[in-house]
Amino acid sequence: MLLATTKVADVDRFIRIFSTKGADKRRLHGSNGATVFRDPSEPDRVWAIFDWDAEGWKNFVSDPEVPAILQEAGHVGKPQAAMLLGHYEA
């Protein structure tokens, strides 16, 4: 699992590209899917929980075709992965 966040120019545009071209590229790097949330206090920020390992994420962000996909999706800056602090029962 991996949690990442980014700011976007337009959420609808972001979802349109994230769910098509972005999904195809993530799949090539081993992603098994994502759940996306809109930040309640920052309407231009989205959060995604990926079913993905750290190596796949690293390969994705270093893929030379990814910057054009991010630009088309309207990212404002680079997506940032959150640091996992732990996993706790209940």
Rank of each mutant, 00 (worst) to 15 (best):
M1G: 10
M1N: 12
M1Y: 10
L2V: 14
L3P: 00
A4R: 06
A4S: 10
T5L: 08
T5N: 05
T5P: 00
T6P: 03
T6H: 01
T6F: 00
T6S: 07
A9Y: 08
D10A: 08
D10M: 08
D12P: 03
D12E: 15
R13V: 09
F14N: 03
F14S: 00
R16A: 11
I17Y: 06
F18A: 09
F18C: 13
S19V: 14
G22F: 00
A23D: 07
D24A: 14
D24E: 15
K25G: 02
R26N: 08
H29V: 02
H29A: 05
G30W: 01
S31I: 02
S31H: 02
G33I: 00
G33Q: 00
G33A: 02
T35I: 08
T35R: 14
F37S: 10
R38E: 12
R38Q: 12
D39Y: 07
P40S: 06
S41P: 03
E42T: 15
P43M: 04
D44M: 14
V46E: 01
A48Y: 05
I49S: 08
I49C: 06
D51Y: 08
W52H: 04
D53R: 05
A54M: 07
A54L: 08
A54I: 05
A54S: 12
E55L: 09
G56A: 01
W57V: 02
F60R: 00
V61R: 04
V61F: 03
V61L: 06
D63T: 03
P64Y: 04
P64Q: 07
V66W: 12
V66D: 11
P67E: 01
A68I: 02
L70Y: 06
L70R: 06
Q71S: 09
E72P: 05
G74R: 03
H75V: 12
H75M: 09
V76I: 12
V76S: 09
V76M: 06
K78N: 13
K78Q: 14
P79W: 01
Q80P: 06
A81K: 11
A82T: 11
A82E: 07
M83P: 06
M83Q: 12
L84T: 10
G86Q: 09
G86F: 04
Y88S: 13
Y88H: 15
Y88T: 12
E89T: 10
E89P: 02
